[in-house]
Design a protein around this nucleic acid. Structure first.
Length: 404
DNA sequence: AACTCGGGGAA
DNA sequence: TTCCCAGAGTT
């Protein structure tokens, strides 16, 4: 069989297979480009089953490009809470604003325009153009690279960007006339349901007959992929500060910086231990530790002017990101004597108020924050308030332990 | 090219 | 444990 015949066989059989067995998914209701767009952003590095509930919630809350463009950023992040890679949410909203401003709220049927939207890379651009507009563009993701590596017995390392470019050319040459959307989804559907990473189910595969890897008994060896490095450990100490008086039943939280890891999400005050202090969180060390309590107290005082009184260990938690492994220890604390604004040093209080006034654009929020005597990125939250501010999952789980 | 950026399901 | 998932942005 010639390569041309193998390719024709692959395209025809795969497309026919997909049209028989394709799953009903929320983003397959219709070809609304906005719906396709949102789904493709959510599906980046995220499984279908994980995305479905988020997708339904998101489309219910932001049904149109305009609705998303107008929404407060915090609400968008809150809707994304727990899904990870939060810059996707911010980029998606930035893209929505661009579509409103430049294209009247209509996603343009234009490859370059779509590819220029924030958060839309080579894969997503191809996916949107092919699925929403049925344009003949490849959409090469991890599934596609795995499927094609096996079928054509390609030994290039799929972790290298160059390999994806090569496979894009191959994938483009396989698209049947007038069926780009279905074919691209068929490739991914096969990778997700049949040609899986570890134990591919070759028997029900519609193209097994001419799959080179299968014919050579090498389906378990392909694709070739260099393995990722282990995430580096970071030891962190956090503190749950219980409020008193008007803040009784609440705890102190802060907002993370605008850029970097978990940007603009909320969290408990905590600190990263430098290497020379990592022994304080050693597994064998006592959980209660005066030096650690002092370090936490100093951090809180310097950032907020509040004086805290340590009450002991609460829980340990591990949280693994792609490249960092947080090993966290949570401590309980409450507020010390006379430790309201008046007790803080004049200098730190003055600067806190100045920062508050400067950072807040909303007059109401500014006066509220100043009245609290807290910097603008700190707040007291109660059991219900956690459903308003967006938190990374690690803290959501901690809240559950604390409040439920 | 290498690193940054979440979280979880599956083996 | 290890892998990797409908990847993109930054350096």
């Amino acid at each position: 069989m010639t390569e041309r015949e193998a390719k024709a066989f692959f395209s025809e059989e795969l497309l026919a297979w997909y049209r028989l067995i394709k799953r009903e998914l929320p983003w397959r209701m219709n070809r609304d480009p906005y719906r396709v767009w949102v789904s493709e952003i959510m599906l980046q590095q995220t499984r279908v089953d994980t995305v479905i509930p988020y997708y339904n919630r998101f489309m219910n809350k932001f049904p149109t490009v305009g609705a998303l463009a107008e929404a407060p950023e915090t609400e968008v992040l809150k809707c994304w809470e727990g899904l990870g890679y939060y810059s996707r949410a911010r980029n998606l909203q930035a893209g929505a604003k661009e579509v409103v401003e430049k294209y009247g709220g209509i996603v343009p049927d234009d490859k370059a325009a779509v590819a220029g939207l924030k958060g839309v890379g080579p894969y997503t651009a191809g996916a949107i153009m092919s699925i929403a507009f049925n344009r003949s563009e490849p959409a090469v993701d991890g599934n596609v690279m795995r499927v094609l590596s096996r079928y054509f017995c390609l030994e290039d390392d799929i972790a290298k960007p160059r390999t994806r470019v090569g496979i894009e050319k191959l994938a483009a040459s396989l698209i049947p006339e007038g069926a780009a959307g279905d074919f691209n989804q068929a490739l991914m559907e096969l990778g997700a349901l049949v040609c899986t990473p570890k134990s591919p189910s070759c028997l029900p595969c519609p193209v097994m007959e001419h799959c080179l890897a299968r014919l050579e008994g090498r389906e378990h060896e392909l694709p070739v992929k260099t393995k990722a490095k282990k995430p580096r450990p970071e030891l962190r100490a956090a503190v749950i500060i219980a409020g008193s008086g008007e803040h009784a039943g609440k705890m102190l939280v802060r907002r993370r910086p605008d850029t970097g890891l978990l940007a603009q999400m909320w969290e408990l005050p905590h600190l990263l231990l430098p290497p020379e202090q990592e022994h304080l969180l050693d597994e064998r060390a006592p959980k209660e530790n005066a030096e650690l309590a002092m370090l936490l107290g100093r951090m809180v005082r310097e950032e907020t002017g509040l004086l805290i009184r340590p009450r002991g260990w609460f829980m340990d938690a591990d949280h693994v990101f792609s490249h960092i492994h947080w090993k966290m220890r949570f401590y309980l604390a409450d507020l010390g004597e006379g430790l309201d604004a008046a007790a803080a040093s004049a200098a730190s209080m003055e600067s806190a108020v100045a920062e508050t006034a400067a950072a807040y654009d909303s007059g109401a929020s500014a006066s509220a924050a100043i009245a609290e005597g807290l910097p603008p990125d700190y707040r007291w939250i109660g059991k219900e308030d956690r459903n308003v501010l967006p938190f990374p999952n690690l803290f959501v789980r901690m809240f559950k332990q604390y409040w439920d």
